[in-house]
C-alpha cells in the first residue's frame, strides 16, 4: 500500500515535471550541474515529502491516500519548477580578473 503511494507520488511528480519542460537529467558533468531536473531533485523531493506526510499521520491506508500521493507529486513538480530556484538560488560566480579589467576604465 505505502509502496504504491510512493510510486504514485514519484510518477506524478516526474510526469508533471516533463510537462512543465524540466529536463529529464541534469547536463553533464552531472555532479557539477545546478540544473533542476525531473530525476534530481524532483523525484528525491517527492520521496521525502511523501515520507513526511506519511509520518505526520495523513496517510490512513484508505483510498484517499492515492489522491494525497498524487497531490504531493503535483505540488513537488510545481515547487521544483517555480519555487526552488527562488528560495535556493545557484551561487553567484566570481568575476574573473580579465573581465573586471575590461569593465574598469
Amino acid at each position: 500500500m505505502l509502496c504504491i503511494v510512493y510510486i504514485i507520488a514519484i510518477g506524478s511528480a516526474m510526469i508533471l515535471g516533463l510537462i512543465l519542460k524540466l529536463p529529464l537529467l541534469p547536463e553533464r558533468p552531472m555532479r557539477q550541474s545546478w540544473t533542476t531536473s525531473v530525476i534530481f531533485p524532483t523525484a528525491v523531493l517527492a520521496l521525502g515529502f511523501t515520507a513526511m506526510v506519511s509520518k505526520l499521520g495523513y496517510l490512513t491506508s484508505a483510498n484517499s491516500d492515492y489522491l494525497i500521493a498524487l497531490a504531493i507529486g503535483v505540488l513537488t513538480a510545481i515547487f521544483s519548477k517555480f519555487i526552488l530556484e527562488r528560495i535556493l538560488p545557484r551561487p553567484l560566480q566570481e568575476e574573473s580578473p580579465d573581465e573586471s579589467q575590461e569593465v574598469s576604465p
Binding site: 555532479r31 557539477q32 531533485p41 528525491v44 506519511s54 509520518k55 535556493l88
Partner: peptide, 24 residues
C-alpha cells in the same frame, strides 16, 4: 525508510544553502 528519505530532503536543502549542488 521514512527517516532516511526525510533526511535526504533536509540534506539537499542544507547542500543548496552551502552553495553545493547536493548530489553527494
Amino acid at each position: 525508510p521514512e527517516g532516511g528519505l526525510i533526511a535526504a530532503v533536509l540534506v539537499f536543502f542544507g547542500n543548496r544553502l552551502c552553495a553545493d549542488p547536493g548530489y553527494a
